[in-house]
Design a protein around this nucleic acid. Sequence first.
DNA 1: CATCTGACGCGGA
DNA 2: CTCCGCGCCAGAT
Length: 107
Amino acid sequence: MKPETLNFFDKVYEVARRIPYGRVTSYGAIAKYLGAPRSARMVGYAMNNSHDKDVPAHRVVNRKGLLTGKHHFDGTNLMQQLLESEGVTVVENQIQDLEKIFWNPTF
DNA sequence: CATCTGACGCGGA
DNA sequence: CTCCGCGCCAGAT
């Protein structure tokens, strides 16, 4: 693993940890904030490693607000439960009113 | 060393 | 507004 890559991953975790309670963000937003808007996929890839970190991966979804990563959680709909537990409305693996609860890292 | 895949995003039809 | 296809980067096989 190259040092630069570790830095990139570390940045992802750092940003993800900054996500406020009851708020969510997208992979692309984080990637863009890191200066790599084309590496949105890498953000999700990094999230896989975040399993061992204290990173709220359930607060990170794709641009459409779809819980694409719910399949990677222990339970089938564990991710949805966590979000709803924070007051986020989720229907059919999709976050409702995404624009309202969306959190921009740059903010 | 070559090839495929993947927690994504955007442009075009 | 919805559906299809291409582009990007890094890790894994």
